[in-house]
Design a protein around this nucleic acid. Structure first.
Length: 854
RNA sequence: GCGGACGUGGCGAAAUCGGUAGACGCAGCAGACUUAAAAUCUGCCAUCCUCUGGAUAUGCGGGUUCAAGUCCCGCCGUCCGCACCA
């Protein structure tokens, strides 16, 4: 092959992508050799994308990282599973159907085709034969089968729960479709509506899911912590309040039983059965409850919104002193979903209760004191939640908070009015969605037999294709024929369930189906045993809680049902940062939002930016996540056209640590492209050995780079690997011609191959056949570092006086402390600074530094 | 509100165990090559000062230590998540 002076990225990208496909380079070997493979397995998985239409830079970054790891694992002798698929159900497809009059399925499949083409242009080492889309009946039919298995195992329940209801569009809204309490399309005030819905009993696994976090030491601490807080295990006291006047009371839960003598009111949720019962005869209370339901359903809205209450006029007895009566309020900040939906309010030591008490002028009693102030009357607007001793609490006075908690619980249990309990913040997983574009829930409602599962031999329950999106609401619900079926038990008239499954269900087991996808069952346990758990999972931190918790739950549930051996799906997790870009805008005057411009409408210089169209300056805004509304997006296709896949991949991996945000810049991608060209020139110098000699210093640097780049990739420190490759390229360029230098150029091809695979193949192919062991560098082995060359025989040792650097010296490595100290004290500069005095103390860290305390 | 993370030059960063702060890259400046441009190459590049040296510097204020970006305490700032978005 004749060598071009410049690397032609576009032609090379296409050529090598075709070559890998022809050679089937990235297929695994499990189907051919299930148990006989000696190779260790490596299952590398990036979170599969939603087919929104086009890939964005965040995808490029995510898949570039996974790809480097997959290619590196292949080079280091692993049997690699690196698949790709599509999280293909979800709301955007229905929105497109409504806005553009297309079918969600057609829209989704078009998007998949477009995005598959874009991903292939990145040159990813993916086994495309395993591609799957969750909207394919082959996939969701197996999901339905698993759902029935979960049902049989008692892990599926039905219960009533609230949804956001748009009374104009007659449809259920997602939280994100509720803007300032109104439906995003209709603008109507959103109501809460109670529906009977399907739930997965994730709370049965709360303890296990919490305990299991302890074993996930290759997960980021922050993700484990977030999950721990999400599961939210709390120990506390559950007890009954007796209504004054004899009527039955209600249960409350508290994590602060120690503050019981500080109670000044009892509060129940607007959704509490007692509140609903009272509202039946009290129109004002009914109106108050309705008002609460018009507020948002999200935790944030509940907790930041104004605290509102309604005095029911009822009172309850204080459990420790029946003569003490507390008023019962209905309040908007008590959640029906947590604890018992009722609390006692202790304003002095809970901020929300204090805000509420101040607003409605309820008493505020101090029961915890951290110093001299012990008066019962509590002043100020800041609740005291710190440590201290009990005061104004009769038999508890003088105890610590923990002692008082224990004392109250033991007394409550002894006297029989309450008991110590564990309460979880985690709620059961509501999986019902009143939408078309999702997995149909395989159940049938029969008047005679109730709700019965669809028999497995009738799966998949396939979505009907003839649906109409011009009328709001769920098209499955009003479909003329689809939902009308015979009851599988009594053969009488019955209707299908028209709710579909939350798309998080689809993503809770796709990693199993990638490993094994038989047509007659969800997966083959023997194949799962070989591949699972996923060795490295990579994706956005936005999935830190829900997706990852649901997938963990699903895996444990399948394990409990005896279908798989593992309990945790992802051995190692990595959460990558976002791709960001500066924004360009102009103010449009009062009351109007600024006008944003896309990066290609802009001329950027060192000190500012101008609009190309009129040459006048625009404001350069902060570097933020790429988003369509701020127009700071860069289209990957345009970048691939201009610079090729390798420059784009290289830039994605450079500079920023992968867990942090990466600021995209035109200068940055150009720099990456220049480096691609620079390597191309260097790769041409593998044969120019003029005087065959050896270059020991360069050999050291080469072998240190082999070891360093390898360990950096393994630890996903791509930015560090990039820096080491830059440093090695600098060293090679500066070195005089030698056999070592030619060898280094040759080795460098394989060092960059995981990151810049097309350039590496092109350079590899240009080598004489005797210099390469494999036809494709994709099949080549990672170079071996010579341990003898990894350590230098000389070290530079710092000499400090009183902790400040005063001199350095170069000594042989491995000298003992005395020799190093003597050498340091013998330095003329040190002798001069000491002025003949004897140092008080000398600390020697061998091979590193000497600190002299004068 | 609750929970989480982050903060080091003009910018992205590095410093793996408490041991020489700023590797590597981007931008910038100066020069070489060229008729010229592009490309390429060489050098400089934290701040200040009394400049062969020294002082100050890792958001701010304390502390521990011979030694702190790293450990401890208290602040400040920024970003992210909050259960029907995926």
């Amino acid at each position: 092959m004749t060598r071009e002076p410049r690397f032609g990225a576009l032609a090379a990208d296409a050529r090598w992508q075709a070559a890998w496909e022809a050679a089937n380079s990235f297929a695994t070997t499990d189907s051919k050799n299930l148990d006989g493979a000696d190779k260790p397995k490596a299952y590398i998985l990036e979170m599969f994308p939603y087919p929104s239409g086009r890939i964005h830079m965040g995808h490029v970054r995510n898949y570039a990282m996974g790809d480097v790891l997959a290619r590196f694992k292949k080079m280091t002798g692993h049997d690699v599973l690196h698949p790709m698929g599509w999280d293909a159900f979800g709301m955007p497809a229905e929105n497109a159907a409504m806005e553009k009059g297309v079918h969600p399925g057609g829209w989704t499949r078009d998007n998949i085709a477009a995005m598959r083409g874009q991903l292939k242009r990145l040159g990813l080492a993916i086994d495309w034969s395993r591609e799957l889309a969750t909207c394919d009946p082959d996939y969701y039919g197996q999901e339905q089968a698993l759902f029935l298995d979960l049902f049989a195992a008692g892990l599926v329940t039905r219960k009533e729960s609230y949804v956001n209801w748009d009374p104009v569009d007659m449809t259920v809204l997602a939280n994100e479709q509720v803007i300032d309490g109104r439906g995003w399309r209709s603008g109507a005030l959103v109501e809460k509506k109670k529906l009977s819905q399907w739930f997965l009993r994730i709370t049965d696994f709360a303890d296990e899911l919490l305990e299991g976090l302890g074993g996930l030491d290759s997960w980021p601490d922050k993700v484990r912590l977030m999950q721990e807080n999400w599961i939210g295990k709390s120990q506390g006291l559950e007890f009954s309040f007796k209504l004054v006047g004899g009527a039955a009371g209600f249960d409350v839960f508290t994590t602060r039983p120690d503050t019981l003598y500080g109670a000044s009111f009892a509060a129940i949720s607007p959704d509490h059965p007692l509140a609903e019962r009272l509202a039946a005869d009290a129109p004002e209370l009914a109106e108050f409850i309705a008002e609460c339901r018009r507020q948002g359903t999200s935790a944030e809205q509940l907790e930041t919104g104004e605290k509102l209450g309604f005095d029911t006029g009822l009172t309850v007895e204080h459990p420790l002193d029946p003569a003490l009566h507390l008023p019962v309020w209905v309040v908007n900040y008590v959640l029906m979903d947590y604890g018992t939906g009722a609390i006692f309010g202790c304003p002095a030591h809970d901020q929300r209760d204090l805000d509420f008490a101040r607003k409605y002028e309820l008493p505020v009693h101090r029961v915890i004191a951290d110093g001299d102030e012990t008066a019962q009357h509590f002043t100020g607007d800041e609740a005291y939640t710190g440590p201290g001793k009990l005061v104004n609490s009769r038999f508890l006075d003088g105890m610590t908070i923990d002692e008082a908690k224990a004392a109250i619980v033991s007394r409550a249990e002894h006297e029989g009015w309450g008991k110590g309990t564990t309460v979880w913040r985690l709620r059961d997983w509501g999986v019902s969605r009143q939408r078309y574009w999702g997995t149909p829930i395989p159940f049938i409602h029969c008047h005679a037999c109730g709700t019965v599962p669809v028999p497995k031999d009738q799966l998949p329950v396939v979505l009907p294709l003839d649906v109409d999106f011009s009328i709001p609401g769920n098209p499955l619900d009003r479909h003329p024929t689809w939902k009308h079926v015979r009851c599988p038990v009594c053969s009488g008239d019955a209707v299908r369930e028209t709710d579909t499954l939350d798309t998080f269900v689809d993503s809770s087991w796709y990693f199993l189906r990638f490993a094994s996808a038989p047509s007659d069952r969800p997966f083959d346990p023997d194949v799962i045993r070989r591949w699972l758990p996923v060795d490295q999972y990579i994706g956005g931190v936005e999935h830190a809680i829900l997706h990852l918790l649901y997938a963990r739950f699903w895996t444990r549930a399948l394990n409990k049902m005896g279908m798989i051996d593992i309990v945790e799906p992802f051995a190692s997790l990595f959460t990558q940062g976002m791709v960001t870009h500066e924004t360009y805008s102009r103010e449009q005057g009062e009351g109007l939002p600024p006008l944003y411009f896309t990066p290609d409408e802009i001329e950027r210089s060192a000190d500012g930016a101008t609009l190309t169209a009129d040459g006048a300056p625009v404001q350069v805004g902060r570097v933020i996540k790429m988003s369509k509304s701020k127009k700071n997006v860069v289209d990957p296709d345009a970048i691939l056209d201009q610079y090729g896949a390798d420059a784009a991949r290289w830039f994605m991996l450079s500079d920023s640590p992968p867990e942090r945000d990466l600021p995209w810049s035109e200068a940055g991608i150009e720099g990456a492209w220049r480096f691609v060209q620079r390597l191309w020139r260097l790769f041409g110098e593998t044969e120019n050995v003029s005087d065959g000699g050896e270059d020991k210093a360069l050999a050291r640097k080469l072998h240190q780079a082999i070891a360093g780049v390898g360990s950096d990739i393994e630890a996903l420190g791509f930015n560090k690997a990039v820096a080491k490759i830059h440093a090695l390229a600098n060293d090679i360029e500066k070195a005089k011609p030698s056999a070592t230098r030619a060898e280094a150029c040759l080795t460098l091809i394989r060092l960059v191959a995981p990151m810049m695979p097309h350039l590496a193949e092109e350079a590899w192919a240009a080598l004489p056949a005797q210099l390469r062991a494999t036809t494709l560098v994709a099949d080549a082995a990672w170079p071996t570092a010579d341990p003898a060359l990894l350590v230098d025989d000389e070290v530079t040792i710092a000499i400090q006086m009183a902790g400040k650097l005063r001199d350095t010296m170069t000594l042989a490595k491995g000298l003992d402390k005395d020799a190093i100290e003597a050498a340091a004290l013998a330095r003329p500069r040190i002798a001069e600074l000491l002025g003949g005095a004897t140092p008080k103390k000398v600390i020697v860290v061998p091979d590193r530094l000497v600190n002299i305390v004068p």
